[in-house]
């Protein structure tokens, strides 16, 4: 009985506390860089598209709102032919960012993307791609991956030896 009265009293005293509400459109919160908002596709430091079309983001997506088609340029560098995110389905869980092996797909602190027409929430690659590396400024997947692309032959990565000569029998 006393505890009930006590809780009533404590609740009552909250009348004189400061209110926590942030009056959103007039007042804005500072969002951290880890905020999971709008999804972007970043570029590597050489301004090449980071996305290699590996489909892992699409596979990780619990609402299946990412679809893409991988393709290759003449040199063998992979990139997405199209990359589509249906933000009307997206739940901003960030799994795609976690799945991405090349840091291409990133969620940024922007959530103000409401539309009157649902169709406008379907973002294509040109709307997703930004001109920068996002949260991982130095990373370039092709500097580590063992495939050759234009400007980088076999064995030219930092962690690679030059290609072997199949005719050599030297130890």
């Amino acid at each position: 009985m006393f505890s009930i009265v006590r809780s009533l009293w404590i609740t009552f005293l909250h009348m004189f506390h400061k209110r926590e509400t942030v009056q959103y459109p007039e007042q804005k919160n500072k969002l951290t860089t880890r905020w999971r908002g709008r999804i972007v596709l970043t570029r590597d430091p050489d301004m090449g598209e980071r996305c290699v079309g590996c489909y892992l983001c699409a596979a990780a997506c619990p609402v299946d709102c990412i679809s893409l088609q991988a393709t290759e340029d003449e040199s063998g560098r992979r990139y997405p032919e199209f990359f589509r995110i249906n933000f009307s389905r997206c739940i901003f869980c960030g799994f795609c960012e976690e799945a991405c092996p090349t840091y291409a797909i990133q969620l940024i602190p922007d959530f103000e993307m409401s539309e009157y027409n649902r169709q406008n929430l379907v973002y294509e690659k040109n709307e997703l791609l930004i001109d920068g590396p996002g949260k991982h400024p130095g990373y370039n997947f092709y500097n580590i991956a063992g495939v050759a692309i234009s400007g980088k032959g076999k064995g030219e990565n930092d962690n690679e030896m030059p290609p072997i000569d199949t005719k050599s029998l030297l130890p």
């Binding site: 609740t11 009552f12 909250h14 009348m15 506390h17 400061k18 209110r19 926590e20 509400t21 009056q23």
Partner: peptide, 8 residues
């Protein structure tokens, strides 16, 4: 309710 829960 808002008043007692520190809201508006």
């Amino acid at each position: 309710l808002a008043l007692w829960q520190d809201r508006y």
